[in-house]
Design a protein around this nucleic acid. Sequence first.
DNA 1: GTTCACGATCAAACCGGTTTAGTTACGCGA
DNA 2: TCGCGTAACTAAACCGGTTTGATCGTGAAC
Lengths: 338, 338
Amino acid sequence: MTRSERPTIVDVARAAGVSKGTVSFALNGRPGVAEETRQRILDAARDLGWTPSHQARALSASRAFAVGLVLAREPELLGADPFFPAFIAGVERTLSDRGQALVLQVVPEAQEEAGYRRLAADGRVDGVFLLDLRVADPRIALLEELGLPAVSIARPDVPSRFPAVLVDDRPGIASAVRHLVELGHTNIAHVAGPSQFLHARVRRAAFEEALANPGPVVEADFSAAGGARATRMLLAMPDKPTAIVYANDLMAIAGLSVASELGVVVPAQLSITGFDNTDLSAYVSPPLTTVRTDPYLWGRAAAEALLASIEGGTVDDVPVPSAQLVVRASTSPMLPAV
Amino acid sequence: MTRSERPTIVDVARAAGVSKGTVSFALNGRPGVAEETRQRILDAARDLGWTPSHQARALSASRAFAVGLVLAREPELLGADPFFPAFIAGVERTLSDRGQALVLQVVPEAQEEAGYRRLAADGRVDGVFLLDLRVADPRIALLEELGLPAVSIARPDVPSRFPAVLVDDRPGIASAVRHLVELGHTNIAHVAGPSQFLHARVRRAAFEEALANPGPVVEADFSAAGGARATRMLLAMPDKPTAIVYANDLMAIAGLSVASELGVVVPAQLSITGFDNTDLSAYVSPPLTTVRTDPYLWGRAAAEALLASIEGGTVDDVPVPSAQLVVRASTSPMLPAV
DNA sequence: GTTCACGATCAAACCGGTTTAGTTACGCGA
DNA sequence: TCGCGTAACTAAACCGGTTTGATCGTGAAC
């Protein structure tokens, strides 16, 4: 009953009464096949329910028809990050139309290099995405050594031959700071991400550049626990800030709770901004002023660029719209104490 | 400079002075090769830096050496779900040791079936994970038709030949309810997930079974927005509940904010429990009483079972430890109004 | 009427492994 | 001394496509 034997190109050839070479030409729409013959072959293929064997094609073409994504974050951190699933969804959107697959690898950070090497050595993928760029990221050199095409999210801080999706967090942070300044705040603090990450550094730099007199900066780790700890430090300062710009929503939401716990009223006594515009940010109390990014779009763009760079030659960096400030209720002018 | 030509098994054979068949035998540790010869071949392979071509092996073995995961959720919902990344990390943990890869597919729900068909038709994967089981899930029959091995997370409600990771949400919900009853609550409500999902249904059934007189149940969609809306409905009831059991943390956290906005003090006037024990749940205000699950472990177990069922014959269902209640500050006895 | 060019098609090689059917050479028992 | 079984190895087929080189037939050009 289970007719599990899939028809091959030879079966199609036999059915159509031609050679397998001709079938291949016909199916790939290449010239040199009479229109009538082509039609006969297509009909036969359809009748037999033929589908190309990915494996065979891959072997013959020396291509994997797949791209890879190596994630070196700890699973716990991944869990809370809204970026990653949305990015993947965007990537898939582009890939699925083109018969490409996405191979995912999640590895402990120490095995990151091995992860890329394995993907390349196996020939499992034709290219990879470079996420979570770090300072002087060693992966750039590694991938050039491996000869594996890549596309990075945001521009690396080292020279790179790979195209980048020009994600720039600066305008988002800058507009959050500007918003707070316009509300009258003068002592604005920042809770940053780990400085090994380029995007954490960029956000911090944007914060500092946007202010003549930047307030204190505390480095945290993008986690809720880290955000809570950083907030506690800031609110324990003698000259405590009246506003805090967080490098992501998760830390900002944790900060909101710490404030509430300490009896600091948001936004009356403390304004808070996040970054990411996570689903939850509009449903905390008070709703969080934050910066909306579009990882879905980045995923689409990154995949386009990666495929282009696999197919052909050099690909230009891809511009993307900059992030937008979303003003909600967690920011306001300082209100006089009751 | 870029010596991109990878050595093949023929190069190894030539270097070792044997035929390619012998090389294959030697490299796969099969008998019938003299120890001395085997050593010579292994040395040659190492010296040349030979690695097997995944493509060639896959074609020859008619195996993909990869497993698939089709996600039919909307990207927005994915973003907030802590389950998914942790599960994948667990899966990877098992797969990477065995030279298997994970192929991810994110599709709109309407194209879910096509997604599975494509994975199967291409021969891109040897098996798949079945997540987010639905009522009378059509994918079970589909996968049996396709002859594709699968492993489901939780047991389906229709007969299935596929092994399941026996995730059971009942004890978790039951212990949350028990906890609330012990605190003296008698009017306990539930905010459920979409009833098309089996796990949403199971949680709801567990809730109703745990109480002699279950309070109102509102069906939401696992999102923050949905959780907020459901909470508003419950708190607008004439006989409003004194405790709410949410089907996930995201909705519970949104519920926390709605209560705060309405001036309902948690936990003094309303107790709230979540489900998932997300990173954030300990850092909201008040910290959330919730149920800890272990998707990382489930991922490992599911991958083990899937590989076993691809290799060999039938595989038994896999038991996993049941979820644990984590008591925090969002639950307490009702306190008299001031 | 012969030649030439070209479109249509086929046969075979190739991608890089695995597997099977043969071929040697050697040691052992009768 | 002959025969036989077996370990060690080789040659070739195979997986299912793509691609190249050769062959065939036909109509146009001379």
